[in-house]
């Protein structure tokens, strides 16, 4: 056994000795790319040296806020130099995504106390909370809002308002609009507002022109590279959360702009929650999205 270990060490040393002094000149194009990169450092726009240089793209450019990435690596490098010890490498890409997400979480002005997605560490619990809320409801469409039939029956002028506070941030601005539609509906013939019946809620316009794909192929061929929700232009105030099978939030964005192009995520199945307001109604769509290259 000891003999084997020694032989292995010897083997390693031999390889090391042979490989260590090896040099191979890169192609001349590399310097040009490097010079180009260095030029771009002063300006905020980064470009990828290779047309299909997905790695750099994912590493520097596509990071939603490149500064975050640079700062992260910079911190890493500072570590190496300040201490003689070799430290762990600067965290890979995933934390960058997280920090980008952190920045993507807007500090909503009228944020309710119940669901504060401000802090990414709470994000998981947010999702759990949403999931719980979901499980409590049989319907996919309405979510803890004043529009749900249940709440409608006992709707008094005060209660919807109280419920508004419980609503999710993304749609916190909605109550005014919702109340408006509510009152529109309440203009139904000779029925007093308090006597609204749930049946009137049934013909809610389904956003049929909304198409959410269930697969994307972020392989750089410009086809289905991004998670593109078609018909988004008809929605207002949307909020999307994308998470892994393990429930880890990897993307959270209000006013999603069809720009989630996960070129640094492994292939697999991810899940999304997509909340939006469509013709004054609040909807929630959830489902899976397969990432396949």
């Amino acid at each position: 056994m000891i003999d084997n270990n020694m032989n292995d060490e010897l083997f390693d040393r031999q390889i090391q000795k042979m490989v260590e002094g090896y040099r191979e000149a890169p192609s001349d194009a590399c310097w040009d790319q490097l010079a180009h990169h260095l030029d771009n450092i002063t300006s905020p726009v980064h470009t990828s040296p290779h047309a299909g240089g997905k790695m750099i793209t994912s590493w520097v450019v596509k990071a939603v806020i490149p500064v975050v990435a640079v700062a992260g690596v910079a911190a890493g490098i500072a570590l190496y130099t300040s201490s003689a010890e070799k430290e762990n490498i600067p965290a890979g890409n995933a934390p960058v995504v997280v920090s980008a997400t952190r920045n993507a979480i807007p500090s909503a002005e009228n944020e309710p106390a119940v669901v504060p997605p401000k802090d990414i560490s709470n994000e998981n619990s947010v999702v759990r909370q949403i999931i719980q809320t979901e499980n409590n409801e049989s319907e996919v469409v309405p979510e803890s809002n004043a529009e749900s039939p249940l709440s409608e029956t006992k709707s008094t002028p005060e209660i919807p308002h109280a419920k508004d506070v419980v609503q999710d941030t993304a749609l916190a601005v909605a109550p005014a609009r919702e109340k408006q539609t509510e009152s529109n509906r309440q203009e139904s013939p000779s029925a007093p507002p308090a006597a609204n019946t749930p049946t009137e809620k049934a013909p809610v316009a389904e956003p049929s022109d909304l198409f959410i794909p269930n697969i994307i192929t972020p392989n750089g061929d410009n086809y289905n590279d991004c998670f593109e929700i078609f018909g988004m232009e008809n929605t207002t105030l949307n909020h999307i959360i994308i998470f892994t099978m393990q429930g880890k939030v990897i993307y959270s964005k209000e006013n999603y702009n069809n720009d989630w192009c996960p070129d640094n995520l492994p292939d697999g199945v991810y899940y999304f929650y997509f909340k939006f307001i469509y013709q004054g109604e609040q909807f929630l769509r959830k489902g899976s999205i397969t990432v396949k290259r």
């Binding site: 890169p26 194009a29 990169h37 260095l38 640079v70 490098i77 130099t81």
Partner: peptide
């Protein structure tokens, strides 16, 4: 080979941007 070149370019980009943090230690 292409990825190696990419790695070289990004590596050198960081080396040049962070040269000041190399304080002649080692």
């Amino acid at each position: 080979y292409e990825d190696a070149e990419d790695a070289l370019v990004t590596g050198f980009t960081f080396i040049f941007t962070k040269l000041e943090s190399f304080q002649n230690k080692g």
